[in-house]
Nucleic acid binder design. Structure first.
Length: 423
DNA sequence: CACCGTCAAGTCGCA
DNA sequence: TGCGACTTGACGGTG
């Protein structure tokens, strides 16, 4: 089984997808953006393989306006070879990919034009998988849609419109319970009736539950029966509620203890795949994979530690020391303790004096190389940060520029400059 | 260069 | 009946 992440990465340099606004969507711009996005996708697949992450959701934004007449570029033929080579890489590395049309793709609408656009959008998503030349174990995940004050009629509408889809699309389509309208019981009834595999989403079920209540394990077991051999391994979605945020918001990271509890209570025989929905994306995917699979070792923890260390030092020198100690014995594999300590560190509020201490540590990489001007600039920024004139982001951006110009690989490969960690 | 409004989709809930 | 919220990250104009 596999544990994967969705669409984007954190802490990696130059892995950003580009988008285009409708008014700028001319052929030249579209060509450049699609070409760029396919290059990024190719790098993402490499990244997954290198990190032993065997599941990845491809962003629907891969081809801007991919299902809209705004995009008049014959991108399928123009980029055919690029798709094929990425597809080969996906197969060679045994990575399972998926696609997830957004909330605005509504197959069960009572407005014919909305349904037409939904079908075009599913054709677009299917086309990506076709161009990659990968089979029907690589799925397209869809929600049922609106309720329109008459759920039974709306469900019937979904079923009717599903039957209008091309069998190729049907063979790849799977349906999922959502956080507002369709519960897992309702989605299962549709899936069982129409032979559509069902993806169980634990958080959606938590906030939009089906009565009588059943355990995650029970729902997952019932969903399992909707998955046929041609569909590949059963897929599920897993996320945790962000504390203090509104219901349904995904947590920043996956709490490893909570995850393992869920994992052990549901997936002890490795019978299904898990797509994580979490803000820190690839980082939680690495964490959960390392916590579950025996093909990781202390060396892999050390590699992750190298990337996290200055983020930990800038929050808690005590936890920094504790992790150093923890990883000293090369015979153990203290994966849960390691990630629990990381989580503990990220819960610590930034304190200016501690942050400055770590900034000076990082400055250590430059102090023999930097020019006098650069040195002056850094220490003047440090003073401005101490007095609250500038933000941490600004001084880190400066250090990132230095790391780039002096090619300090160790820093450039770390998560230290990732701005999503600063809040 | 930092900051923040805008974009793009369909449904639903609240004036 | 109409309009804002919902959602998301990147774009792109402003200061």
């Amino acid at each position: 089984m596999s544990i994967g992440f969705a669409c984007l990465t954190l802490g990696l340099y130059d892995y950003q997808f580009r988008t285009v606004m409708a008014k700028n969507a001319n052929k030249e711009t579209l060509y450049e953006v699609i070409n760029h996005n396919l290059t990024i996708l190719d790098k993402m697949i490499d990244y997954c393989a290198e990190n032993k992450i065997y599941m990845y959701r491809i962003s629907s934004d891969l081809i801007p306006f991919g299902s809209s007449p705004i995009n008049q570029l014959p991108w399928e033929s123009l980029f055919q070879e690029k798709f094929i080579s990425i597809g080969k890489k996906i197969i060679e590395n045994r990575i399972r990919v998926s696609l997830h049309p957004g909330q605005y793709t509504v197959l069960n609408s009572f407005k014919e034009d909305v349904v037409d656009r939904a079908i075009l959008d599913l054709i677009y998503h299917n086309k990506i998988l076709d161009l990659l030349k990968i089979d029907s174990t690589h799925k397209i995940i869809l929600h049922i849609g609106g309720a329109y004050q008459n759920k039974q009629a709306a469900i019937q509408n979904f079923e009717n419109n599903y039957k209008r889809l091309n069998p190729d699309i049907q063979s790849r389509l799977v349906i999922e319970n959502d956080d507002k309208i369709y519960t897992i019981e309702e989605v299962l009834q549709i899936g069982e009736k129409c032979q559509i595999p069902v993806v169980y989403d634990n958080l959606h079920n938590q906030i939009n539950p089906s009565f009588p209540l059943q355990s995650d394990k029970e729902w997952i077991e019932r969903c399992a029966r909707t998955w046929k051999p041609k569909d590949g391994k059963q897929k599920t979605h897993y996320s945790q509620q962000a504390k203090g945020k509104k219901s349904g918001s995904h947590s920043f990271t996956i709490d490893i203890e909570t995850f393992l509890q869920y994992y052990r209570s549901t997936n002890s025989h490795h019978q299904f795949d898990i797509m994580l929905e979490v803000k820190d994306k690839n980082l939680s995917a690495i964490k959960c994979n390392q916590a579950v699979f025996d093909y990781f070792s202390i060396t892999d923890l050390e590699k992750e530690w190298a990337k996290y260390k200055y983020l930990v030092l800038e929050r808690s020198p005590n936890i920094y020391q504790a992790i150093r100690l923890l990883l000293q014995s090369k015979k153990e594999y203290p994966v849960v303790a390691f990630y629990s300590l990381l989580e503990e560190a990220f819960a610590v509020r930034l304190q200016t004096s501690v942050v400055c201490n770590s900034l000076e540590h990082v400055w250590g990489y430059f102090k023999d190389k930097a020019t006098l001007t650069e040195k002056k600039k850094f220490f003047s920024m440090l003073e401005k940060y101490k007095t609250g004139i500038i933000k941490l982001q600004q001084i880190k951006r400066y250090l990132f520029r230095l790391a780039t110009s002096y090619q300090i690989t160790y820093l450039l490969q770390s998560y230290y400059f990732e701005e999503d960690f600063i809040n």
